[in-house]
């Protein structure tokens, strides 16, 4: 059979993939590629002090340290072996691949309305943004990203832990 006939058939198969893929994208829930800016924390009506500054999506090490002191949960979005060899004390492990079978079980133990700090290795690392986008999609409205990542936390001498404590 001629080569052009084979190319024609290959193009037909590719077109079938495009049509089925397009149809699938229509019936699938919308996909969020980037996390939303977090909602500001509600200020209690009885509060007489200064209105706290709303935190943005990406937060600094100082802001993360402040949230850590308030008991805010931390999420480690790095590779499992990185988590095991060292992570922010008390952090749970939720990497992008944790969403392969839907929302990871550990997320059900986190408060969707409360702030959450997600981190990876800083710099070029996209994992924290991907995890934040997927948690957003699952209804977590106050995801913050520690932009400088785990290396900055370690360099500042803040508490860390090792082992699989926060892994499924």
């Amino acid at each position: 059979m001629s080569c052009s006939k084979q190319i024609q058939r290959a193009a037909t198969l590719a077109l079938a993939g495009v049509v089925v893929g397009a149809a699938h994208s229509i019936i699938h829930d919308p996909i969020k590629l980037r996390p939303d800016a977090p909602l500001p924390m509600p200020v209690p009506a009885t509060s007489g002090g200064p209105v706290p500054q709303a935190l943005g999506l990406e937060i600094t090490l100082e802001q993360a340290w402040d949230l850590f002191g308030k008991g805010t949960p931390f999420v480690d979005a790095r590779r499992p072996e990185d988590y095991e060899s060292g992570h922010i004390e008390g952090a749970v492990w939720i990497a992008p691949e944790s969403f392969m079978g839907g929302l990871p079980e550990v997320a059900n133990f986190l408060d969707r309305e409360a702030p959450l700090v997600i981190y990876c290795t800083g710099g070029d690392c996209d994992a924290s943004h991907n995890v934040a986008a997927m948690l957003n999609q699952a209804g977590f409205k106050r995801c913050h990203i520690l932009k400088e990542g785990y290396p900055a936390w370690v360099a500042a001498g803040h508490p860390t832990a090792t082992g699989k404590g926060g892994m499924p």
């Binding site: 699938h28 996909i31 969020k32 590629l33 992008p96 691949e97 969403f99 392969m100 079978g101 996209d126 994992a127 991907n130 986008a133 997927m134 999609q137």
Partner: peptide, 11 residues
């Protein structure tokens, strides 16, 4: 897990 694959493409 289409969102995971889409996130990988962004990466």
């Amino acid at each position: 897990a289409v969102p995971v694959f889409a996130g990988a493409i962004v990466g």
